[in-house]
Lab assay of single mutants.
Amino acid sequence: GSSGLPPGWQSYLSPQGRRYYVNTTTNETTWERPSSS
């Protein structure tokens, strides 16, 4: 899909309704949208 996220990243919603991002390669999580640069 065209999520616009860098490879390996997925976006999720927290129980509070906030969006966060997870790097499935490194298990890093961040509130900031990852850049593909």
Rank of each mutant, 00 (worst) to 15 (best):
residue 28 E to N: 04
residue 18 R to N: 08
residue 22 V to M: 07
residue 35 S to M: 14
residue 31 W to A: 05
residue 19 R to H: 06
residue 35 S to L: 13
residue 15 P to F: 06
residue 22 V to T: 05
residue 21 Y to H: 00
residue 7 P to H: 10
residue 34 P to S: 02
residue 36 S to I: 13
residue 5 L to K: 02
residue 34 P to D: 01
residue 35 S to R: 09
residue 21 Y to T: 00
residue 23 N to V: 01
residue 35 S to Q: 12
residue 19 R to I: 15
residue 17 G to W: 02
residue 36 S to A: 14
residue 15 P to V: 06
residue 12 Y to W: 07
residue 34 P to T: 01
residue 33 R to K: 11
residue 29 T to G: 05
residue 20 Y to E: 01
residue 21 Y to E: 00
residue 26 T to K: 03
residue 21 Y to M: 00
residue 18 R to D: 10
residue 1 G to F: 09
residue 2 S to E: 14
residue 3 S to V: 13
residue 21 Y to L: 00
residue 5 L to T: 04
residue 16 Q to L: 11
residue 24 T to R: 08
residue 28 E to F: 07
residue 14 S to R: 01
residue 13 L to N: 04
residue 19 R to A: 07
residue 10 Q to P: 01
residue 4 G to L: 10
residue 37 S to K: 11
residue 10 Q to L: 15
residue 7 P to C: 13
residue 18 R to P: 02
residue 19 R to W: 15
residue 21 Y to Q: 00
residue 2 S to T: 12
residue 8 G to S: 05
residue 5 L to A: 04
residue 21 Y to W: 11
residue 6 P to K: 03
residue 28 E to V: 07
residue 26 T to Q: 02
residue 29 T to I: 15
residue 30 T to W: 07
residue 22 V to R: 08
residue 7 P to D: 11
residue 3 S to P: 12
residue 15 P to Y: 06
residue 6 P to D: 04
residue 14 S to A: 04
residue 19 R to P: 12
residue 24 T to V: 11
residue 9 W to E: 00
residue 3 S to L: 15
residue 7 P to K: 08
residue 35 S to G: 14
residue 30 T to S: 11
residue 28 E to R: 05
residue 3 S to M: 14
residue 26 T to R: 03
residue 10 Q to H: 11
residue 8 G to I: 03
residue 8 G to L: 04
residue 35 S to E: 12
residue 2 S to W: 07
residue 15 P to M: 07
residue 14 S to Q: 01
residue 9 W to S: 00
residue 27 N to D: 07
residue 19 R to M: 13
residue 37 S to Q: 13
residue 37 S to H: 12
residue 1 G to D: 14
residue 1 G to Y: 07
residue 5 L to H: 03
residue 19 R to Q: 07
residue 16 Q to E: 15
residue 7 P to E: 11
residue 2 S to K: 09
residue 3 S to Q: 14
residue 20 Y to R: 02
residue 11 S to G: 06
residue 36 S to H: 13
residue 13 L to H: 05
residue 27 N to P: 03
residue 13 L to I: 12
residue 30 T to N: 03
residue 31 W to K: 03
residue 37 S to R: 09
residue 6 P to G: 04
residue 16 Q to I: 07
residue 36 S to K: 09
residue 29 T to E: 07
residue 35 S to V: 14
residue 24 T to W: 09
residue 33 R to H: 12
residue 31 W to M: 06
residue 5 L to M: 06
residue 15 P to D: 08
residue 17 G to Y: 03
residue 8 G to P: 09
residue 6 P to H: 04
residue 22 V to I: 11
residue 9 W to L: 01
residue 22 V to F: 10
residue 31 W to H: 06
residue 7 P to M: 08
residue 8 G to A: 04
residue 15 P to W: 05
residue 5 L to R: 02
residue 24 T to I: 13
residue 34 P to R: 00
residue 21 Y to I: 00
residue 34 P to I: 02
residue 7 P to N: 08
residue 12 Y to P: 00
residue 36 S to R: 08
residue 30 T to F: 09
residue 11 S to F: 06
residue 13 L to P: 02
residue 27 N to Y: 08
residue 3 S to N: 13
residue 2 S to M: 12
residue 22 V to A: 04
residue 18 R to H: 09
residue 31 W to P: 03
residue 17 G to I: 00
residue 21 Y to S: 00
residue 37 S to Y: 11
residue 33 R to G: 03
residue 8 G to R: 03
residue 14 S to G: 09
residue 24 T to N: 08
residue 17 G to F: 04
residue 9 W to Q: 00
residue 37 S to W: 13
residue 13 L to D: 05
residue 8 G to T: 04
residue 8 G to N: 08
residue 29 T to W: 15
residue 25 T to F: 15
residue 8 G to Q: 06
residue 4 G to Q: 11
residue 16 Q to S: 15
residue 29 T to M: 15
residue 5 L to Q: 02
residue 5 L to D: 06
residue 37 S to P: 14
residue 11 S to E: 15
residue 10 Q to C: 15
residue 20 Y to N: 00
residue 4 G to Y: 10
residue 8 G to D: 07
residue 13 L to M: 10
residue 27 N to M: 13
residue 30 T to Q: 11
residue 7 P to Y: 09
residue 14 S to E: 04
residue 35 S to H: 11
residue 27 N to Q: 11
residue 3 S to D: 14
residue 2 S to L: 11
residue 34 P to F: 02
residue 6 P to F: 04
residue 36 S to D: 12
residue 27 N to V: 02
residue 20 Y to D: 00
residue 9 W to G: 00
residue 25 T to K: 13
residue 20 Y to G: 03
residue 5 L to N: 03
residue 16 Q to W: 08
residue 31 W to D: 05
residue 4 G to C: 15
residue 35 S to Y: 11
residue 27 N to E: 06
residue 31 W to T: 06
residue 6 P to Y: 04
residue 5 L to E: 14
residue 32 E to K: 11
residue 36 S to L: 14
residue 9 W to D: 00
residue 26 T to F: 02
residue 2 S to Y: 08
residue 15 P to T: 07
residue 2 S to V: 14
residue 14 S to H: 05
residue 28 E to H: 05
residue 26 T to I: 03
residue 36 S to F: 15
residue 12 Y to H: 08
residue 17 G to E: 01
residue 7 P to A: 11
residue 1 G to I: 13
residue 9 W to R: 00
residue 36 S to N: 12
residue 14 S to I: 01
residue 1 G to S: 13
residue 32 E to R: 09
residue 26 T to S: 05
residue 34 P to A: 01
residue 8 G to F: 07
residue 29 T to V: 15
residue 16 Q to G: 14
residue 33 R to S: 07
residue 36 S to T: 12
residue 15 P to K: 09
residue 31 W to S: 05
residue 31 W to G: 03
residue 27 N to F: 10
residue 24 T to Q: 10
residue 12 Y to G: 06
residue 29 T to Y: 14
residue 33 R to F: 13
residue 11 S to I: 09
residue 16 Q to Y: 08
residue 28 E to Y: 06
residue 9 W to T: 01
residue 2 S to Q: 12
residue 32 E to G: 04
residue 37 S to F: 12
residue 36 S to P: 11
residue 14 S to N: 12
residue 12 Y to T: 04
residue 34 P to H: 01
residue 26 T to P: 00
residue 33 R to D: 07
residue 28 E to M: 06
residue 2 S to P: 13
residue 12 Y to Q: 05
residue 18 R to I: 15
residue 32 E to H: 10
residue 19 R to Y: 12
residue 29 T to A: 10
residue 22 V to Y: 12
residue 5 L to Y: 03
residue 13 L to V: 11
residue 9 W to A: 00
residue 17 G to Q: 03
residue 26 T to E: 02
residue 3 S to T: 14
residue 23 N to A: 01
residue 36 S to Q: 11
residue 16 Q to A: 13
residue 13 L to T: 08
residue 19 R to V: 15
residue 17 G to S: 02
residue 23 N to Q: 03
residue 28 E to T: 07
residue 10 Q to R: 15
residue 7 P to I: 08
residue 16 Q to P: 02
residue 16 Q to H: 10
residue 20 Y to I: 06
residue 14 S to W: 01
residue 7 P to W: 10
residue 10 Q to S: 09
residue 29 T to P: 03
residue 35 S to T: 15
residue 30 T to I: 08
residue 9 W to N: 00
residue 30 T to D: 01
residue 36 S to G: 13
residue 4 G to R: 11
residue 27 N to G: 15
residue 4 G to H: 10
residue 1 G to T: 12
residue 12 Y to D: 03
residue 18 R to V: 14
residue 20 Y to F: 10
residue 1 G to N: 12
residue 19 R to E: 10
residue 25 T to L: 15
residue 12 Y to I: 06
residue 32 E to F: 13
residue 3 S to W: 15
residue 17 G to A: 02
residue 2 S to I: 13
residue 6 P to I: 05
residue 28 E to K: 06
residue 25 T to P: 01
residue 6 P to L: 06
residue 29 T to H: 13
residue 8 G to H: 07
residue 2 S to F: 10
residue 6 P to A: 05
residue 11 S to K: 03
residue 27 N to R: 10
residue 9 W to Y: 02
residue 7 P to T: 08
residue 29 T to L: 15
residue 32 E to V: 13
residue 3 S to A: 14
residue 26 T to H: 01
residue 27 N to T: 05
residue 21 Y to D: 00
residue 26 T to W: 02
residue 12 Y to A: 08
residue 24 T to Y: 08
residue 24 T to G: 06
residue 4 G to S: 11
residue 9 W to K: 00
residue 11 S to L: 07
residue 17 G to L: 03
residue 4 G to A: 13
residue 26 T to Y: 03
residue 11 S to V: 12
residue 31 W to I: 05
residue 11 S to A: 12
residue 26 T to D: 02
residue 16 Q to N: 15
residue 30 T to M: 08
residue 24 T to K: 09
residue 15 P to A: 09
residue 18 R to Y: 09
residue 25 T to E: 14
residue 16 Q to M: 10
residue 12 Y to V: 07
residue 10 Q to G: 05
residue 32 E to Y: 12
residue 18 R to T: 10
